[in-house]
């Protein structure tokens, strides 16, 4: 299972303003308008300090280790006691005899959260060229992470899958149904 989640935060300031507009979710079209025509949004100059924070969160499974498991084999010996003059009608008797089991390497998978938030400073010209912020973030993250994927922070979530657990359970289940 792999989840990819990209989010973004858009921050900017109009340098001519001294108000509280700095830290809010902003709309790309508003910034574009300010870049194209500052007067349209009540300013004398184009917005500056435009920052886009692109966050990439992924949940991936990785092999943590392998554990050696024994797949139990089975050996059953049956005995029936007969004679041609006496009908004993004795049901077969069975008992388990020792037998060597099969060793198997079982992968243990752990869930890892990979995360990075990159802060990009962009210019008005770059904003005007943008289609959507999602596109910008996806392309920027692809570019920066594909070159160097160890920039993502790794955290184990604690979720673990023992790949062999089901196999053994299945075998036991089958044994029970035979009885």
């Amino acid at each position: 299972m792999k989840k990819l989640f990209i989010s973004f935060i858009f921050l900017f300031t109009f340098a001519a303003q001294a108000n509280s507009n700095t830290v809010k979710h902003q709309d790309l079209e508003l910034i574009k308008l300010g870049c194209k025509d500052p007067a349209a949004v009540g300013n004398q100059i184009r917005p500056s300090k435009i920052q886009i924070v692109c966050k990439d969160q992924r949940l991936v499974w990785e092999q943590a280790r392998t554990e050696q498991r024994d797949i139990p084999s089975q050996r059953i010996i049956s005995t029936v006691l007969r004679t041609n003059k006496t009908n004993l009608k004795v049901a077969p008797k069975t008992f388990e005899a020792p037998v060597s089991s099969t060793a198997m390497n079982c992968p243990v998978m752990q869930e890892i959260k990979l995360e990075v938030s990159i802060n990009y400073n962009v210019t008005c010209d770059e904003v005007l060229d943008m289609n959507t912020i999602e596109d910008f973030c996806f392309e920027s993250l692809e570019k920066d992470i594909s070159k160097n994927d160890d920039i993502m922070q790794r955290t184990a979530t604690g979720n673990v899958i023992y790949a062999c657990a089901q196999t053994r359970q299945g075998r036991q289940g089958r044994q029970r149904s035979q009885k």
């Binding site: 995360e115 990075v116 938030s117 990159i118 920039i151």
Partner: peptide
């Protein structure tokens, strides 16, 4: 905790 950001 920490809300991490990164600059390149």
């Amino acid at each position: 905790g920490i809300e991490t950001e990164m600059k390149i």
